[in-house]
């Protein structure tokens, strides 16, 4: 990928289109975080492509002054795969939501993760359908009252990270929709990662599901309720930085530093690069604290690399360089 260091500012990535999300929506935060991240990745903007599906999140490409396509519901990962395979030099971003990715587009979502093309998926999870005005989504909670579940939702939710890792995701990060600094950092890391990266943003829908993540993301509780993990660092959280995680048998446990002789060195060190995703899955499932940051970042061969290798081998062994070679090969005969 051709790169260009420090040439752009966020303004270069802002299109001239008026942004039309509801006032107060976390989508604005995500948009700005992306516009801040891309100049730091150092990619030429003509090499950046945003592909989206349908939903509030999917208006995103219109607001980025890059190449972009607002596709059809659920199919962005498939469209993006075609873009990337056609031109592997491009930095390809999929913008999707919980309904787009895990309901109508569930099939594409799991298969794109499995294949591991070098691209990035930003999943705006607000646990509700916004654009169609308030129906439950595949991440809505059981009992949640929505337009289509007035007496409470009866369908148990997906945990996106769990689903993604089940589908062999090599890179999975989760960030709060109101933490732009962390988000920007995660976007940059995702862009640098070779393979499909999935970033789940806990995005608050102010209209239909306001406060869905408040117990983790509200400024007042954030430090105590969220553990932002970093590769190679101990798993510490809390306003006082005195809480941490240890592994007790097959379970993760919250401990307090200084209690029962627990020292920082007793805490788990985050290893995002583990091939075995068991621990990553456990981190994803924790409710207290809610684990954010790059939970999994396992380097693996990408789909393009496999395809390239194979193409090189086939080319080296092939007797064909032009299609005519093929047409006239094998059994042909002459008619006088």
């Amino acid at each position: 990928m051709e790169t260009l260091e420090n040439k752009y500012t966020y303004k270069d990535f802002a299109s001239d289109q008026e942004v039309r999300w509801c006032p107060g929506c976390d989508d604005y935060v995500i948009l700005r975080a992306m516009q801040n991240a891309l100049p730091q990745v150092g990619i030429k903007k003509e090499n950046v492509v945003f592909i989206s599906g349908i939903g509030c999140s999917s208006r995103f490409p219109y607001y980025m002054d890059t190449y972009g396509m607002h596709g059809i519901h659920g199919r962005a990962p498939a469209i993006a795969s075609g873009v990337k395979l056609a031109n592997p030099e491009l930095s390809v971003w999929v913008i999707t939501g919980d309904g787009d990715a895990m309901a109508i587009g569930g099939n594409h979502f799991i298969h794109v993760l499995r294949r591991n093309l070098d691209m990035n998926i930003v999943l705006f999870n607000n646990e509700i359908y916004g654009l169609t005005k308030g129906q439950f989504s595949p991440t809505s909670l059981v009992g949640q009252r929505t337009k289509s579940s007035p007496y409470g939702n009866t369908q148990p939710p997906f945990l996106p990270g769990e689903l993604a890792i089940g589908a062999q995701a090599r890179f999975y990060a989760r960030v709060g929709g109101n933490t732009p600094k962390e988000m920007t950092q995660v976007f940059i890391e995702a862009a640098k990662f070779k393979g499909t990266s999935l970033i789940e943003v806990l995005q608050n829908c102010v209209i239909f599901n306001d406060g869905a993540f408040a117990k983790y993301t509200d400024k007042k509780v954030r430090a105590d309720k969220q553990l932002f993990v970093e590769h190679g660092k101990p798993m510490i959280f809390g306003k006082e930085r005195n809480k941490g995680l240890v592994l007790n048998g097959l379970k993760l446990e919250v401990v307090t530093l200084g209690e029962e002789g627990i020292k920082e060195s007793d805490l788990l060190i985050h290893n995002a690069k583990l091939e075995d995703p068991t621990l990553h899955q456990m981190l994803i499932r924790m409710e207290y604290p809610l684990v954010t940051g790059i939970i999994r970042r396992f380097p693996d061969v990408t789909f393009e690399e496999r395809v390239d290798d194979l193409t090189r081998k086939v080319r080296a062994d092939s007797k064909f360089t032009k299609t005519d070679d093929l047409f006239f090969s094998g059994e042909t005969y002459e008619v006088e």
């Binding site: 199919r75 469209i79 795969s81 075609g82 873009v83 395979l85 056609a86 099939n107 594409h108």
Partner: peptide, 22 residues
């Protein structure tokens, strides 16, 4: 470049993406 996709829809959608990219 031939992609055996996960379904018919992904087949055409990936082709649309590839067409967008030239």
């Amino acid at each position: 470049k031939a992609l055996q996709a996960e379904d018919e829809i992904a087949g055409i959608s990936s082709a649309i993406g590839a067409s967008f990219a030239g």
